[in-house]
Nucleic acid binder design. Structure first.
Lengths: 214, 214
DNA sequence: CTAAAATATGAGTAATCCTCATGTTTGCAA
DNA sequence: TTGCAAACATGAGGATTACTCATATTTTAG
């Protein structure tokens, strides 16, 4: 029983596919499974995706699903890998030939627009790529919390830069705060030395932004 | 059946507590439940937390758990609210009396250290506050993906600033990239207008950092 | 044509969230 | 003190769902 529990909650390991589709027929079926999963994730998020629904939507049996995907996460994983590969190609292409400041400005700006547009248009990517199946209510709490915290920063900024556009100050504060949370999350997921460097680098960046004169 | 499913996957709503503990005894028991949940989340993450384990560890029955928490998420939620309130008080206190640039520098730096330290020391907060129950493997993929993408930026930076410290460039690139993802995630969770503003603000910030001379 | 490999199936198993009927304790008015 | 209503406690069992496996079918290779 202990081993079963261990295996069940062993989230740190990637289960390898039970079998790779080698025939034409099975390749097509696997594609249908992925498409079905993608659609369901888009509708309700990967957490609410049910294996039975995926099978039904793909027109295959439950068993066939498990023929090629060892478990539910493997399907999400496969989609994630697909999008990852696509995005890397895109990023690499955009930045490959940049060789001066002006080029970087342009390429970076375009890249962000593409990335942003992708997230806006594709809920699957939002779920898979943003990597959080956290439920909406919790996300809402986080956003509210971020806003509340950013307000403290806004108050400070208004004192320091009374003539600045309030809307811009709000935007700056919220962004700086959110990026800080991202920096800390990143920092705790790498080794301590790199984490410390990242936090220090973030501090410098954030302060430059916060103290920047109009 | 349809209604049941709807209720089950209705992640956007916060279920209100079935009952508030009004007697001394039940208040203590609820505390024990929260403590047990907190410990289990620290061990394995909230996703792997089992209601039966929480009850056992708290020394109460399953039924008592559901007397005060409508569902599993409500426990996580309760912990999150607790930490949120604590952190807001901390942030507010740190920033309240800041009135000049030097003060902001100090306060902000200290705040970040506290925040970072909290995440390092308290795995519960990591799970609850960082708001992602996404499994470790997926998180690992994301980090690897971020690193890979940041490498493209590093290549550009090395061309633009050949004399800069490579380690610093790596740090800058990874941070800028990660913050970009955070900015986009934030942008898609607010209305379109504010989202656009946030992305544009991020672009400006990021480019200032990337193009900054040593 | 035939045997082996690949693929397909879906009823069944096990894990887990949550309910509910029933029993126990507490607060309080008479 | 006593009696009673409200609050609290319990855990077996219902319901859902990820996943298995014995069995059947299709494809491929020799």
């Amino acid at each position: 029983m202990d081993e079963k529990v261990a295996a069940k909650s062993d989230q740190g390991t990637i289960a390898s596919p039970r079998r790779s589709p080698s025939q034409q027929r099975s390749r097509e079926r696997v594609e249908r499974m992925l498409a079905a999963a993608s659609a369901l994730i888009a509708e309700q998020g990967s957490d609410a995706m049910r294996m039975g629904e995926v099978a039904e939507k793909a027109g295959v049996s439950i068993g066939s699903l498990y023929q090629f995907f060892p478990d539910k996460r493997a399907i999400v994983w496969a989609l994630a890998e697909r999008y990852t590969a696509e995005s890397q190609a895109c990023i690499s292409a955009a930045l490959k030939d940049v060789s001066d400041a002006e080029g970087l400005k342009q390429a970076f700006s375009e890249l962000l627009d593409i990335y942003y547009g992708l997230f806006l248009a594709e809920p699957v990517i939002r779920d898979v790529w943003s990597g959080t199946q956290a439920d909406k209510a919790l996300r809402g709490l986080e956003l509210a919390d971020s806003r509340a915290n950013a307000e403290f920063l806004v108050a400070v900024l208004k004192r320091l830069r009374p003539d600045a556009d309030p809307v811009e100050l709000e935007t700056t504060a919220l962004l700086v705060w959110q990026m800080g949370e991202a920096a800390v999350r990143l920092a705790i997921s790498v080794d301590r030395e790199e984490g410390d460097r990242l936090v220090e680098a973030y501090k410098r960046m954030a302060l430059r932004e916060l103290l920047r004169a109009e």
